[in-house]
Structure formats: C-alpha cells, structure tokens
C-alpha cells in the first residue's frame, strides 16, 4: 500500500452495489482529493453522490476496490474503528436536520469532541472546548448570546446549517464532507454561507468535499467534478431524469 501524502482521499477501482440492487451504483476507476483541496461534486439526483460520501466516511463498505482517507486504508478498519476514524478525521454537514433537537446549540457543536479524543485535544489546544465552540459560532456570524441557550429547533434553517458547519469544523478534522448543505437556503444566504464555510475550512486547514446540484456555486471551488464523468456505472437505469 502506497501512502500518497498529497491526497487526503484516494479511491481505486471502487465498486459498490446497494444490497438488493442488480446494478452497481458506483464504479469508479480513480478519484482523489488533495490536502486542503476544495472539491465541488455534482451529478443528477440518484447518481450516487451520497453513496460515495458514505463510502468515504466508512459508513458503507465497497464490494471492490480501495479507499484511502488521510493515509488510512478503510478496509483495514473494523466496526468500532470505523466510527472512531470517522469522528477523528471527518467533519460532516448534511442537507438539513443536522442538529439534535434535544441538545443546546453549544452541545451540538461539541458533540464530536464527546466521541473523539483527537478532536477534543485539538479543540482545547489554545483554550477550552466551550470557547472554541463559541469562537466557531461567532466565526459563522451567529448571534451567540442570542442563540446559545435557545432550543436548536427555534433557529432558522440557515442558522442551523451554520451551527452544523461549526460542529464539522471543531477539532479541525482534515476532511470536511458536505452533502448539499445549501439546498435548503435561498441564493443570498447560500453565497454568504459558502464564504463563511470557505474561510473556516481555510483556517482549519481541512480539505472540503462539497456536494450540490447548484452548478452556479462551482466557480469558487478549486475543482469541480461531475460524478457521471468518473462513474462508469452511471449509464444504467438507476438515474432519475430530474436533477
């Protein structure tokens, strides 16, 4: 196994079939993301973008091929190690419903530190974890004093997404994965959100894999990838015609 120091993510000969499906959802010969690189991933609905992210995050395992993330070959990891790997190295933002409704904004942001020693250590390097969480929330332009103790369900969708970014970034994981984090936002907030995300990803020194349907966002990324271009399995009938 060759560790490539430039790549944070490297896929080779990847094949994935959902259990019960006849056709492969993903068949990727090669794909990689460099350190600190910001990659925009697009593709029609049902093309397997979320599936790919799940594979990189070691939530799913491929039937064939190899995935190396931050120098770790995922097939060498066992059950609990995968969860540990994920929280140690990856910060995640979903399309929506990123937050646990029963935890405060503060606790939601600090959640990864509960499960990862590594991120706890990084987050508490220069100050306490709470202060780091507050710093990130402020960096995300959130009115901290206003929202700190409010139930997360009272936040606007845009605010919730920014809290989710703060959580993804806490403890500076080397890779941030975002699955359509802007699809619930209007176009103005979308741009502002992206700017904040970029700034903090930059500060954290993380790479960013960003999935979106919205091709207009692609311009600000280092690289834009269309999943249909790299995925040999896309010409089957699994694709939906609407995107």
């Amino acid at each position: 196994m060759i560790k490539s120091p430039e790549a944070i993510v490297q896929l080779d000969n990847l094949q994935f079939i959902w259990p019960g499906n006849v056709h492969a959802t993903l068949d990727i010969d090669h794909f990689s993301i460099g350190q600190r690189e910001r990659v925009f991933l697009k593709g029609p609905s049902g093309s397997g973008k979320t599936t790919l992210l799940s594979l990189i995050a070691a939530v799913l395992s491929p039937q064939n091929g190899r995935i190396v993330v931050d120098g770790i070959s995922l097939d060498t990891l066992k059950g609990g190690q995968k969860d540990q790997f994920r929280v140690d190295r990856i910060g995640m933002v979903f399309q929506q419903f990123n937050l646990l409704p029963f935890l405060s904004v503060q606790d939601n942001v600090q959640l990864p530190c509960k499960f990862s020693k590594q991120r706890r250590a990084t987050a508490s390097q220069s100050h306490t974890i709470t202060e780091e969480a507050n710093r990130l929330l402020r960096a995300m332009r959130l009115p901290l004093d206003d929202i700190k103790d409010r139930p997360v369900t009272e936040l606007s969708v845009g605010q919730q997404q920014r809290v989710a970014v703060a959580r993804a970034l806490i403890g500076r994981p080397p890779l941030i994965i975002a699955d359509e984090p802007t699809s619930a936002l209007d176009s103005d907030t979308r741009q502002a959100f992206l700017a904040l995300l970029f700034a903090e990803v930059e500060t954290a020194g993380s790479a960013l894999l960003f999935v979106s349907h919205d091709a207009s966002l692609a311009g600000s990324f280092d690289r834009s990838v269309d999943l249909t271009d790299i995925n040999a399995a896309t010409d089957n009938e699994h694709q939906d015609s609407f995107a």
Binding site: G79, D83, L100, L111, S116, R167
Partner: peptide
C-alpha cells in the same frame, strides 16, 4: 447525526 459525529451503533 449521532453516527456522523462518531457515535457507534
């Protein structure tokens, strides 16, 4: 969400 934040099954 819990799983993405490192919670195990």
């Amino acid at each position: 969400v819990l799983r993405s934040a490192g919670a195990r099954p």
